[in-house]
Computed example of a mutant assay.
Amino acid sequence: MKIFVFEWVSGGGLVAEPLPPSLAREGDMMLRALLDDLTPLPGVRVLASRDPRLPPLAGVSAIVPAPGEGALELYARGARAGDAAWPIAPETEGALERLTRETLQLGKILLASRPGAVRLTASKYATALALRAAGVPTVPTFREGDPVPPPAMPGPWIVKPDDGAGCDGAVIVPDWRAASDRLAMRSGHLVAQPWIEGCALSLSLLCCEGRALLLSCNRQHVRITDGRPALAGITVNGVADQAGRLAELAERIAVAIPGLWGYVGVDLVLAKEGPVVLEVNPRLTTSYCGLRRALDINTAAMVLDLLRTGGAADGWRRPEATTSVTLSLETDRGD
């Protein structure tokens, strides 16, 4: 099988724009981790895409954008050359959804979540509604025009783009009134959520056909500067799943959002009342970069195995925890 791997930032998605060093480094981390998993697999050949402003990839065939070629055209050219495609892109402005739909329209195997699931999870507001309807504990999420939150939600709020990735564009404000004012500045594009105290976590999942296998629980190291949060680092496999409640939460998320497939990330807060979901990322996340060292597994091989097994229950075994791995992103921020 020939697999085309396309990481949006390092692979040419921003070829017509300045290339932020922080995003390029983080994207490159994910790309190289995935390539390290794919290239040793028997019967697998890999083709990647590369922004020409970055150093070439050693030992991997790669295409570069042609003059005037847009990101979608570049992606289609690479996907046509392979049997399957593995897109890694932000949900912002529908980028990841367009790539997933293009893959299927070309008749290629999509090694990622299905377009419907990507479209839903691209919106924090729609995700919260879907999860809440399924009984999944989710942070209350508001947009302009929604009923005023109850008095039981005092204290700080966070306002962020509805389709933003991670902490990008997020700002912490002192109360709901300040949050409401910010929502009015970009009606329909922002959401507001009460700030929830607790331990910031992410989950690394393997999903297929409404099922989820919890690979690791990761501790997120968030720093706040002038009211703006940023992810400074991640300790992969840094949190134990006490009593299996996070594994159960993962299963409920997979049922609530049909079409999640392959590697999926979930951001949440472990509050004193229990876990509260913030968002679902239907793609590779930075935590992927530490899974091999932390768990001694090849996650890409596990994803490819889903094509054969369809996620059959007898083939799903959570990896034995071995160690934790801390990934530092501190130098990535503020470039």
Rank of each mutant, 00 (worst) to 15 (best):
R219E: 15
R32V: 12
E248W: 01
D332T: 12
V118L: 06
D332G: 01
R119Q: 12
A256R: 01
E93W: 02
D28Y: 00
P151E: 10
G59V: 08
G70S: 04
I109Y: 06
Q242V: 14
G210Y: 03
K124P: 03
V239G: 11
P40Q: 04
L47K: 12
L110C: 02
L215N: 05
G135S: 14
M153Y: 15
E279F: 05
V46S: 03
E248K: 07
L284F: 14
R32S: 12
Y263K: 02
A301R: 13
W261I: 00
A62N: 00
S328F: 03
E320A: 15
T323W: 02
L111S: 12
T138P: 02
V280C: 03
L47H: 13
E330N: 04
P21Q: 05
A133Q: 14
A321C: 09
L231T: 08
D51K: 14
P156E: 11
P137C: 08
G94S: 02
R132A: 15
A240T: 13
A95Q: 09
E251F: 02
D28F: 00
A48Q: 03
A192S: 14
P229R: 06
T121Q: 06
L54N: 09
L19Y: 09
E73M: 01
G198A: 09
L110I: 00
A313C: 05
L74K: 05
A321T: 14
K108R: 10
S180C: 09
G274N: 11
D296W: 11
G198E: 04
V222A: 05
G262Y: 10
A16W: 01
L23E: 09
L31D: 07
D163A: 12
P150S: 13
L34T: 09
L231G: 07
C289D: 08
G82N: 04
Y75Q: 04
S113F: 06
G27A: 03
V276G: 06
V255R: 15
A294F: 08
A117F: 07
C207W: 05
G94D: 03
P194E: 02
P40Y: 00
P137T: 04
Q105L: 12
T309K: 11
D37C: 13
L19E: 09
S49R: 06
A117Y: 08
R98K: 10
G13Y: 03
D181H: 11
V255Q: 13
V236T: 13
G244R: 09
V236N: 06
I234K: 07
M29W: 12
R50P: 01
P137Q: 09
A85F: 02
G274K: 10
I224T: 14
R223S: 15
I297Q: 13
G262Q: 12
A133N: 12
R177D: 05
T141F: 11
D162H: 02
E197Y: 08
L327V: 12
E273W: 04
V266A: 11
E273V: 13
E279I: 01
G227N: 05
G94T: 01
